[in-house]
Amino acid sequence: MSERAKMTLKLKIWRQENARSKGRMTDYTLSGVSPDMSFLEMLDLLNEQLISQDKDPVSFDHDCREGICGMCSLVINGQAHGPEALTTTCQLHMRKFKSGDTLFIEPFRAKAFPVLKDLMVDRAAFDEIIAAGGFIDIATGSAPDANAIPVSKINADLAMDAAACIGCGACVASCKNASAMLFVSAKVAHLSHLPQGQVEADKRILSMVAKMDALGFGNCTNEAECQAVCPKGISISNIARLNRQYLRAALLSEESESMDCLEEGSH
């Protein structure tokens, strides 16, 4: 590729020593960026330069770099995973930007997602929500024969759509209230649409929502920014389903009474 095609970018990156220190936006100028680079490769290039200058490289989360693991994050120019719809940061390419552009690069921000260093955040809160009930506890035996358990086509599709959630946390990052409702609703939906998930459906929904609230996520105000930035296109119809299933479970389920007793016992 000719040198002319290479881009020069002004970067404003959040630098923070550790979880306790105060961070700030720091300016960098990076040249030699190829339009074919992914966003993370662009940061790799910056880090190579910083290391060669004996400076501290920028920490950021990444793993598969194929858009399926949910590790990469970043709020780029004010949008989680950058400006492109249905795309993770690792699958965002520099050809989406122009030479001379100024890029704001910040970590996902929420009380429940504390910054560990620079652009790295601790998303263990999501693991805690899953641990509260996002699983099937009963013995379901070994893998059954295909179609041995009848599942309607529509339910299979809805369960798969919800299961596409990679738990990246962009929904929380983009929500003005830092609400985790899209994540929780997807995790609840992908199990509750299937027969194996039915047995513990009420208990699951009550525990996961209780954990979500306890972790300090905000409340959903139905603005759908989460759905707009979600790299997997999870729909807010899952949130509506969570809302009605929660109301039903809270009012009618025996599990609700036993949970209330547990709660009172812990005080």
């Binding site: 120019n77 004010g78 983009s174 003005k176 209230n177 300090g216 409340n219 603005e223 707009a228």
Partner: peptide, 25 residues
């Protein structure tokens, strides 16, 4: 609760145009 769920604000935050509306925000 929503305000305290994000103690540190973004330096730059931009709506996607595919979600929030003027009325909702």
């Amino acid at each position: 609760e929503n305000r305290s769920a994000r103690p540190e604000k973004y330096a730059m935050q931009k709506r996607t145009g595919r979600g929030a509306t003027l009325a909702s925000s």
